[in-house]
């Protein structure tokens, strides 16, 4: 139940939707799957005066470009991506990450764009504020921080928990953003500000239109893992996506991306661990060292009952396993 009234529009085209978003003159939000927006409105973390539904606009099916890249409509439902034979074959990492989100009903409603645009989370935020944590915190436009009372205004350590974002970053996807001036395109990792108050570098008058995933090169391998206590339904304690590319010799690492999410204000790349791999023959020891480096490099925020030390350990172990899986895939061991 949402206990306040708002207006609702259901435009037939994207152009109308964008025009409403720009010209409504009130706090307006786009409504896609609603699985993140509506629960946030229920607890009044967000209180838009107008919802602009994208429900009348059907997503385009994934399309392969001439360069082998694949364009995915941001309005695609996560369930449709995880269940698409085409996506499972061409971008299995994306399918796997979509498969890891929430529960089945969430994936049936939620869209890929919406998953990227989700709000950050913190135990103090994820609830009604009637008598607990009633005074708004920084994130809710107030002037306190419950978990870190010493935090200064502008400083919020809530966590960005999209399961698909690390996958898209690891894949080197481009994000096509529709705005007043037409479309602009940014690499997926440039979508994130690192500031939990405004985690996405997208203006309120813009929307994510599509994701463009480059063709998988020869010698490509991937790995994905979402750590949870229960194996499903809940948000991640940490999630991680890695991609590797091997030289033609089948041993030497030509490129590596290691991305860890759900432990910070945005997804994090473990750049120094990536550098450690590039140009070297990939051995179990080297992957293990890289995982150690990445775990040291990434400074996880304690969140949702998990301590920083434990998150580090969890990331260390699962990155090693994820990198190992990626190497096996890259060298044709598993597909």
């Amino acid at each position: 139940m949402i206990l306040y009234d708002f207006d609702y529009e259901r435009p037939g085209t994207l152009q109308e939707a964008m025009s409403l978003l720009r010209n409504s003159g009130v706090d307006a939000r786009l409504l896609a799957g609603g699985t993140d927006l509506l629960p946030n409105m229920r607890v009044q973390n967000l209180k838009p005066a107008l919802l602009i539904s994208l429900g009348a606009i059907a997503p385009m099916p994934p399309q392969a470009g001439e360069d082998g890249s694949i364009r995915i409509d941001a309005l695609s439902r996560l369930a449709d991506l995880e269940n698409s034979d085409f996506i499972r074959r061409e971008i299995p990492l994306l399918a796997e990450s979509a498969h890891a989100v929430g529960g089945n009903q969430i994936r049936q409603s939620a869209t890929l764009g919406g998953n990227l645009c989700q709000e950050t989370r913190c135990l103090h935020l994820n609830q009604e504020h009637d008598y607990q944590f009633a005074a708004p915190c920084y994130k809710r436009g107030g002037d306190c921080c419950y978990p870190y009372p010493g935090n200064k205004p502008g400083s919020c350590w809530s966590v960005y928990m999209s399961d698909t974002a690390p996958a898209l970053i690891a894949l080197g996807a481009e994000v096509e953003i529709l705005g007043e001036e037409g479309t602009r395109s940014v690499p997926a990792e440039r979508l994130f500000s690192g500031n939990a108050l405004t985690p996405l570098l997208i203006a309120r008058s813009e929307m994510i239109r599509s994701l463009i995933v480059p063709a998988a090169p020869a010698g490509f391998g991937w790995g994905y893992h979402k750590s949870t206590l229960r194996g499903g339904l809940e948000f991640a304690m940490a999630n991680m996506a890695v991609t590797l590319r091997l030289e033609d010799d089948g041993e030497t690492c030509a490129a590596a991306r290691i991305v860890v999410g759900a432990v910070s204000e945005g997804p994090l790349r473990a750049s120094s661990a990536e550098r450690k791999l590039v140009g070297k023959a990939l051995t179990a020891e080297l992957l293990s060292e890289a995982a150690d480096d990445a775990s040291d490099e990434i400074n996880p925020l304690p969140h949702h009952g998990f301590t920083r030390n434990y998150l580090r350990e969890n990331i260390r172990v699962y990155l090693r396993r994820t990198l190992t899986a990626a190497l096996e895939r890259a060298s044709g061991g598993i597909i």
Binding site: H124, Q127, L233, F235
Partner: peptide, 10 residues
Amino acid sequence: TLNPNWLDYR
């Protein structure tokens, strides 16, 4: 109570 819901109470 920090986790008064079924995502955070497991």
